[in-house]
């Protein structure tokens, strides 16, 4: 029974979650009811989580996307420039920001399938490029790197409101909805099988008739559009958009996905795992304010938790793969 549970990709992330909670309660003296009633970590989890879900799928398929770091501010700036600075209807702003997301995703995806350059490098290039594009165009168009935005009531209600007495963001509901959709796609539909197959071994996936290229491009579009979506919601909620580096978001999202049991090299992972991994990361990062532990140590806790969670993942997977002989990894071409 236990071994069946341990074999699930989410096992390590659930253990990490309990471990972190136990640590905070025992060492940090946190009061659980206060923590659970607070919105701060849940809001943060939703922000990270909406991007972490597609990034998880992408990593299961064997690719990675770090341009998301630039896409959250890019989405926010686009809507603020269109609907805030130029005063056009909110629909145009939202559409424009989503289009930017789709466009960057297409660039990433097409380059990833057309060249044999690793996606880390391709998205590193779009990350740097987009940071420059967003800042330069914002300065060119508005003369400033910070743009205010006033949203109509419907947009506020749908994308930027606070619920339950004013501290939970509506973004949380979006996150849960996205999680259900992605769960269905990955675990109930044939697309899910394709994604796992792509992460396992691309050439044989292609031979099996899976449209590998189309799927890869689609996944890249999903990640950068979700990042733009988070940017839109933040711009509407906080009535402004600012340019920022987004460097921390990259690492935070990757850490959430990996703590959630997704294998960086592809072929292994689950939506439930990514969901719990994101929750765990958010509790570590934001819950520390509810403890008596000095906030200065939060990065140390994140680092140690990540390494422990990954180590657990590795050993559980070995248990899971137990009898199955591991397929040797396809070799990279040697230097001629």
């Amino acid at each position: 029974m236990i071994s069946v549970l341990l074999r699930r990709p989410a096992a390590a992330s659930i253990l990490s979650l309990f471990g972190v909670l136990a640590f905070y309660v025992l060492v940090g003296g946190v009061e659980l009811d206060k923590l659970f009633n607070a919105a701060s970590w849940l809001n943060y989890a939703a922000r990270i989580g909406i991007v972490a879900l597609p990034v998880g799928l992408l990593m299961i398929s064997g690719e990675i996307d770090i341009s998301i770091g630039a896409m959250i501010p890019a989405g926010a700036m686009t809507i603020a420039i269109i609907s805030g600075y130029y005063g056009m209807p909110m629909v145009f702003g939202i559409a424009g920001a989503l289009c930017v997301g789709v466009a960057v995703g297409l660039i990433n995806g097409i380059l990833a399938v057309r060249t044999n350059v690793p996606s880390l490098i391709i998205t590193l290039a779009t990350l740097v490029g987009m940071q420059g594009v967003v800042l330069a165009s914002s300065k060119l168009l508005t003369g400033s790197a910070s743009v205010p935005l006033t949203a109509p009531v419907w947009a506020k209600t749908l994308l930027g409101n606070l619920m339950f007495g004013g501290s939970h963001q509506v973004l949380i509901i979006w996150w849960v909805v996205f999680a259900i959709i992605f769960w269905f796609v990955l675990h109930q539909s044939r697309y899910g099988n394709w994604i796992y197959a792509m992460g396992g071994d691309k050439p044989s996936a292609r031979n099996a008739g899976i449209p590998v290229n189309r799927m890869t491009i689609l996944l890249f579009v999903l990640t950068s559009t979700s990042a733009a979506f988070v940017g839109i919601c933040h711009a509407i909620l906080f009535n402004s958009a600012q340019v920022s580096g987004g460097m921390n978001d990259i690492f935070n999202i990757i850490v959430s996905v990996v703590v959630g049991g997704v294998l960086l090299t592809g072929g292994f992972g689950s939506i439930a795992g990514v969901f719990v991994g994101t929750l765990t990361f958010a509790i570590v990062n934001k819950g520390i304010d509810f403890t008596t532990i000095d906030r200065n140590w939060s990065n140390l806790i994140i680092g140690v938790m990540l390494l422990l969670a990954v180590a657990m993942n590795e050993s559980f997977r070995k248990v899971a793969l137990g009898a199955i002989k591991r397929k040797p990894k396809p070799n990279a071409p040697k230097q001629a």
Partner: peptide, 16 residues
């Protein structure tokens, strides 16, 4: 923790 995402982070702390 840092100055990225500063506005939302501050609002989070206020709400907290």
């Amino acid at each position: 923790q840092n100055y990225e995402n500063f506005g939302p982070d501050l609002v989070t702390l206020i709400n907290q």
